[in-house]
């Protein structure tokens, strides 16, 4: 782990994206090599996108008809039926007739739960980890290196190892099937978040903070008025990554939050998957459900696209 601790100081890749890049002297010539490279990149994009299209195509098909034309590129026997039964707008009898089970996805409740869990986790984790990272990067105190090493050591622990005792803890606290139970283990800190932010905070110019000290600013004010604004790029990056991770988390919430009232979308999907009708999976319904579950994060991506993409690159260079 020493490598990570001694990781080189940070460059900000945002700069690389924003700064005018030296243009190539000539527009690239058409060569066979470039054409083949474009074909390869096109193939990658196609493989990436096909499953999304297939979700869409299948979700508008009639489940019982899918077998008659599995290779059809268009929906088989077009219908909104899958969405109706998944969203609980169809009666169990109607659902059954179309190859579904009586199960539906209580979409708005699960969406609310996913939003609450991901938002609270993100805000808490980013705030508390920023604070800790600040103390590790900018403040002098006895025990700092010891505590930091302990935190970093936690990076090495495979999550399954802490999952069992954490489940016991949450259970003994009576927090099974509560938001708190789902959120708590990642609310206050993750080793990665602290390590990540500390790297960036180490790089913030000392002069600005010293100027604030001369102005008589206390630690708290320096943190909020100097460090947070200057560190906003990595903080936003961390927030986006945390949000995506938290939104997609399945293992922990399916252990402690299966109850309807706190069930998040991923868990709901797992439950829906096990609600297989007698005949075999209701593929159209399942694909409609997956698409519905994926939709919120895809919408977020549309609005925050550039920001998210930069974040990924940003997180890598450290």
């Amino acid at each position: 782990m020493t490598t990570i601790i001694n990781a080189p100081a940070v460059t900000a890749p945002q700069e690389l994206d924003r700064a005018p890049r030296p243009r190539r002297r000539t527009t690239p010539k058409f060569t066979l090599g470039r054409a083949m490279a474009w074909v390869a990149l096109g193939a990658v994009m196609l493989i990436t996108l096909i499953p999304f299209y297939w979700m869409l195509r299948t979700s508008f098909s009639t489940s019982t008809s899918l077998g008659s034309d599995p290779g059809s590129l268009l929906p088989v026997d077009f219908t909104f039926g899958a969405y109706e039964r998944v969203l609980g707008l169809a009666t169990p009898a109607e659902a059954l007739a179309e190859g579904g089970s009586g199960a539906s996805i209580n979409f708005w409740v699960y969406l609310r739960n996913s939003l609450i869990v991901a938002t609270v986790t993100t805000i808490g984790q980013v705030l508390f980890c920023s604070m800790a990272a600040y103390a590790f990067a900018r403040l002098q105190w006895r025990g700092r290196d010891l505590v930091f090493s302990a935190f970093i050591a936690a990076l090495m622990v495979p999550p399954i190892f802490t999952t069992i005792p954490n489940f016991v803890t949450i259970r003994e606290l009576g927090l099974l099937n509560t938001y708190a139970g789902i959120i708590l283990p990642t609310l206050l800190m993750t080793p990665f978040a602290i390590f990540f932010l500390r790297q960036f905070f180490l790089g913030i110019s000392r002069e600005v903070e010293e100027a604030a000290i001369i102005d008589g600013a206390g630690t708290l004010r320096r943190f909020f008025q100097v460090i947070l604004p200057l560190g906003s790029a990595p903080i936003v990056t961390l927030a986006i990554l945390t949000y995506i991770t938290s939104w997609n988390e399945y293992f922990w919430p399916q252990l402690v939050g299966r109850e309807e009232e706190v069930r998040v979308l991923t868990v709901a999907l797992g439950v829906f998957r096990s609600q297989t009708p007698q005949g075999g999976p209701d593929w159209a319904g399942l694909m409609a459900a997956t698409l519905i579950a994926a939709l919120p994060i895809l919408v977020m991506f549309i609005f925050l696209g550039r920001r998210v993409i930069n974040s990924i690159g940003y997180s890598g260079v450290k």
Partner: peptide, 22 residues
């Protein structure tokens, strides 16, 4: 409130629910 789970998942889901308190 009626909930349905496929037979192959039914009793495992029941165990998980008993452990998970729901």
């Amino acid at each position: 409130k009626i909930e349905q789970y496929g037979y192959d998942d039914y009793f495992q889901t029941l165990t998980t629910s008993l452990v998970g308190g729901n």
